[in-house]
Structures are given as structure tokens and as C-alpha cells.
Design a protein around this nucleic acid. Structure first.
Lengths: 195, 195, 195, 195
DNA sequence: AATGAATGAGGGTTCATTCAT
DNA sequence: CATGAATGAACCCTCATTCAT
């Protein structure tokens, strides 16, 4: 499964977005030139500027699209679950599976920085990415499943632990599949936040 | 206190490093030009290239210096403590205090990416930053204070939670001083990893 | 007649090559800046780098083009002649005429140095320029018209004498047209190599 | 024998000149930086600017010194001979021997261009280098040993043949010692100019 | 006489963007 | 819709030269 974007086939617009995602993640936004995106997507400079107002807007569109995909995915997979404990385990499993299945999708979500001049808005790392964890925490607290500590701390533990392990995996510090760490991770997180 | 680098005084070399730190954090490496560093440090283009082979090497030197400072600080402040629980609390307190006291120091350590073309080696986020958490976890396990889960997961929870909260604070999502969250954070982390 | 390159008209690429030839000969490669080539050719920095990878590659392309022209010219004009004596006279006449007609063309061929960092390959001065003289010598020897001395010496005398006189003419040491010296030159060279 | 300049020993000034000669020939004037000359000569930037007003003046001084050495050498070795034929043979032998013995000395004399912005005056290639050939030709004509052709042509043949062979030797096109070609060269030149 | 840190004009080059076709 | 030649501001970097020590 490729969660993110169509590859060599698809519309010109999609081919450009797919090429940009790969290049931005592999080489970084600033080290990726428009000609490289053109070469990699098999399109033309003109096509890029026909579909996107600028390189920044291309990055922004890409980001928006990935965030939307991520939010949709989270909602359908995680919020469908009932108990807070199940949701935590489901969230961990989903994030780890995404990382193994589509490293580009996850890399872009994890590393696109809010403050960068490129991505003008807060990214999944801060805002949207918190929505789901906040929801898990808030609902869990209401149900008495989660202890009464500052929400931000609980959200931070939940999202931080997951992101950190993904980070170490993408960096190559962790060489095993994250799936093998999913149970331990859920267990530790739950111990940290359960009442 | 300014943990990191001397400001307007000091040697030419130090003034350049100090200006680079501020600008790299505020505007990003790629949006900081050498002329800006020159203007901000009150030196000259020639001075920059007399002391550093290139802009990349300047960033690398800066990174190395901050990592070394960080490791020295961690060791003296945290590893001096006895029990794992004290060490976790001490580590959280130190990191939060550093964030409030010298946002540039912490920002550079947190955001300098391992894989970037600029910083060739793994950063504090991955490697050196893990050393201290790994040490806390390993020693704590040996003393029977910490539960028997995968080390990487325990390290990930410890460092990930802290980094995530720092991240949210630096992004402006958290507006209170992190010091007010230190107790809750230590408490949650400890619950997550204690045996 | 302008043997070498179109001047103010022609494609952007040709205008750049023409301007570069003039400037490189008049001021030297290292004292010619890209902005000067741009101004002189009425194009833009971008156009130069759109057509040539670098200043060095521009010089190299220019050199290659002039060498090719020269070889084509030599072949058609000199090798069409029958006897070695006629060929020597024809070669002298052609080179002297070229010098008077298009000093830039000849200057670039004469002065571009083989070993220079700019021109990576051996130049007309050494390799290609020797082809025609070597051919004249070899064929002349076979026909018994040329004496039996080391080929390199005979080639050296033939090409060296001509190049030296062109050199003195281009330097302004000789102020008369070389055409007035063609007969004496052919006569002396022939006396030196004839059997 | 090293005809040109003292190497690692000698005064600071001489060490700088010796290093400059080697570097200018090996890498070219424009690709040799003052720091390189400093490193190669084991001196300091200050020392260079104490002894020479500028890089250009250093090159000029070097040139002047080598030309003077060359003229002195020519005079004592060649003009001491009696007949024009002996002088031609002596000149060829001396030039070829110099080339084999001290490639830097000869390279600098051969390749330093008159018109270059570096060397403001005419070089040995044009002016001083012609003095001796002109003298051989003029005296030889007066004695009836040399035929009555234009002096410039005769000088061109004499010096051009020699320089061309040296050129090919320095370029690596000729791989044998030039000494093995001395007799053939003298013979051909003499045939070309003798009455 | 010697040193080398500091200077900054000027160089080559990149690359996002435009627009005539 | 699509193309890619052309543009030029802005970048990083070099290096001859100066001068306080």
C-alpha cells in the first residue's frame, strides 16, 4: 500500500506532487530545484507553474494534502475504537505501520517544521497531530480511564514517545521494524497516562 | 544566564558563532546569508572565511560546540543524582530550565536534523542526546527501579516526552513556562517506565 | 570574411561564443568576467548558464568549435594539393591569410594552452595542429620529396616556423602583413625539409 | 644543475621566487594564490609583501630575473662560437639541454605571454629571445653563410623550430629527451637558412 | 624584518520565475 | 494546457592586500 501519492501514473499534477514529496524528503526542500522535480516527474517547468503558483505553494499544497490524509486515516482507524486503552494501542499501531509502509508520507509529516518559511502554518507535528491525541486524552479522562494530569503533558507523552521512536527509526538508529516494538510502546505509554 | 555563546563581546570567532546561532534558529540555515551573519556579528566576510571553511562548516562547528556543552551539562547535573526517579526528575527539570533560559541553545539542539546536508553526523536528537537517557534507563533497570521493556522504547518515552513538550513550547503552542509542567511531566514519565 | 563566429546577429548561443572569443583573446580568460561576456553579447547571465555549464565549459566548447573549423579548413585547402612542396606553400599561405583575416580565430588556436585548467585536452598547438603537418611530412617522405630526418623535427620546423611568425605578428613585433612574407617563409621551410 | 633559482635554502626572497616559479608553471599564475606560495616557500604573507609590492610585481621580478639569466647564458655559450653553423648547433643544444635540466626555467620563459596583464613587457618569446637569433642571422648573413631572405623569416624559422620542439616536449607529446633530436634539428634548421 | 588576522571587492554560479510560442 | 529559453537577484566563496603587533 502506498498511502500518500500516486507514482509514475496519474495526472500531471499528481506526478509533480509525488516527485516533490520524494525529493523534499530525500534531499530537503532547499536542495531540491524545480528542474529536479521536473526531471523526476517527467513533466515540464511550465506544467509546474501552471499547476502551482510557486515552489512554496507546491510545498504547501503537498503538506495540506498529506495532513488531510493523515487526519482522515486517524479518525477512521483510531476514533472508531471505544476505550482509551484501545485507542492508544490503535494509534501506536497505525503510526508504526504507516512508518514502515510509507516512509515518505511519515517523514514529511514529522519533519516539516511549523516555523519554516516554507510551511506557513503549524504542521501535523504541532496542531493537527495533536487533535487526535487531545481527543484520546480528553475522552479518556472523562471516562475516568486516564489520570488527572495537565492535558499538555499527557498529550506530549503520547505523541512524543511515538514520534521519537519514528524519528529514531527514520534516522536508522532503530533497525528493526517498529511493528516489533508496538506492544512495548503501547504498554509504556498506557502506564504513563492511565489513572 | 546564557548557556550557549558569548554575545557582542568576545573573540571574532565567538561573535560569529553567536550570531549564527541566533540567525539559524530564527530564520533557518538556508534563509540566513553570510552577509547577515557578518552584519549581526559586526565582523567581515573575510573573518567568517578565515575562521570557517564554509557556511556548512560553520554550522557544523556550532553544532559540535553546543552538543559538547549539552553533554557536559547533562553529565554534571543529572548523573550526579542517585536513584533513577531522581534522575528522571532532574533531567526533566534541567531540560525545561534550559529551554526557558536559552531558547536558542535548545532550539539548535532539537531542530538540527541528522540527515541534513549541513549536519553530517547524527545529532543530539538521536545519538548523543540518547546517551544520557540510555544511561538512566540502563542503570535504573539494573537497580530494579525500571520495568523490563525494550530499552529503545523506554528511552523513546523518556526523551520523546521531554522533546515534544519543548517543541510545543518553542512553537508557541504552550505559552506557560515549562517549569510549571515539570512535576506533572516527571510524574507521567516515571509512571510509564517504573517497575 | 569572418572565419570564426557570427557577431551581433545569430542565436543567443552564437552571440555568447562570439563575445567570449573576442574577450578571451583581448583580455585573457581570467580577466574576462561573465558579466563582461553578458554585456558584450547583449544577453544575460542566465542565458550563458543555460547554454554552458560553466565558464570553463564555455571556453572548452569555443575551443572545440574553432579546432574543428580549423581542421576542416586545413583538410579542404591543403590536403587537396598534390606535391609536398605545394602543400607546404599552401599551408603557409592559408595560415598567414587566416591570421590577417581573423586574428581572433588564430589567436585562440595559437594561445589556448594544452595544460591549462581551462582547456583540458591537447590543443591545436600540439595535437590536432600536428595532424596536418604530420600528414604533409609523412606523405612527402613516401614520395621521396622530403628528407629522412626524425618526423617530429620536420613537423616542428614546419609548424614552429609558421606559428612563430604568426606569434610575432599578433604581438605586433611584425607590422607588415604576413602575406608579404609568405613566399620567403615557404622557401625557407622547404629548404629545411626537402630531400 | 639547477639553472634558475635556489630551492629550499637561500634567502627568504629567493625561496619565495623559487616557490613562485614552480607554482606558476605547474598551476598557472591565476591558479596560484599567495597563501600557496607562502606554504610552499615556508615563509609568511608578510614576508612576501615585504619583499614584493604585489603578486604582479613578484611575477614581473621573477620574469626579469629569468630573462637576464637566459640572455647571459645565451651570450656566453652561443656568441662565443665563430661560424653561424656552429652557433645554430650551439643554440639548439643549449636550449634543448636547458629544457631537460630545468623545465621550470624554460617553461616560464616560453609560456609567459607578452600581452598578459601579468607580464607587462614583451617576453623572451618575442623580444629578448629574438636578440640572439637576430644576432646569429645578421652576422651569418654578413659572412655570407646565410641566404638572403627576410630576417624575420629566418629568425622565425630558427627560434620557432626550437620553441615548437620544446613546447611538444613540455606538453609530453615528445617523450624522448630532446638531446637525441639535437643533431637532426640543427641539420634541418641549417638547411633552411644556409645560403 | 616578520607575522597572520582581518578586510571586502569581485568572482562564478544557482535557481525560482516569466512569457512568447 | 504545455513548453523551455531567457532572466537577473542573490547567493557562497576567493584571495590580493593591509596593518597592528
Amino acid at each position: 500500500m502506498n498511502t500518500s501519492l500516486a507514482g509514475q501514473t496519474g495526472t500531471v499534477r499528481d506526478r509533480i506532487l509525488a516527485a516533490a514529496l520524494t525529493l523534499f524528503v530525500d534531499k530537503g526542500f532547499h536542495h531540491t530545484s524545480i528542474p529536479e522535480i521536473v526531471a523526476s516527474s517527467g513533466t515540464s517547468i511550465g506544467a509546474v507553474y501552471h499547476h502551482f503558483a510557486s515552489k512554496d505553494e507546491l510545498a504547501h499544497t503537498l503538506h495540506r494534502q498529506l495532513v488531510d490524509q493523515f487526519v482522515a486515516l486517524s479518525s477512521s482507524e483510531v476514533l472508531a475504537l471505544r476505550t482509551a486503552k484501545e485507542r492508544v494501542a490503535g494509534y501506536v499501531a497505525m503510526m508504526f505501520r504507516l512508518t514502515e509502509e510509507d516512509r515518505y508520507f511519515v517523514s514529511y509529516l514529522i519533519y516539516a517544521r511549523p516555523k519554516s518559511a516554507v510551511i506557513g502554518s503549524l504542521t501535523v507535528c504541532s496542531q493537527e497531530g495533536l487533535e487526535i491525541t487531545r481527543h484520546i486524552i480528553t475522552e479518556g479522562k472523562r471516562a475516568g480511564e486516564i489520570r488527572d494530569l495537565d492535558d499538555r503533558v499527557l498529550c506530549g507523552l503520547l505523541s512524543g514517545t511515538i514520534m521519537r521512536l519514528i524519528d529514531l527509526r527514520l534516522d536508522g538508529v532503530i533497525t528493526d521494524s517498529l511493528m516489533t516494538l508496538a506492544d512495548d510502546t503501547s504498554s509504556a505509554i498506557w502506564a504513563g497516562i492511565a489513572s
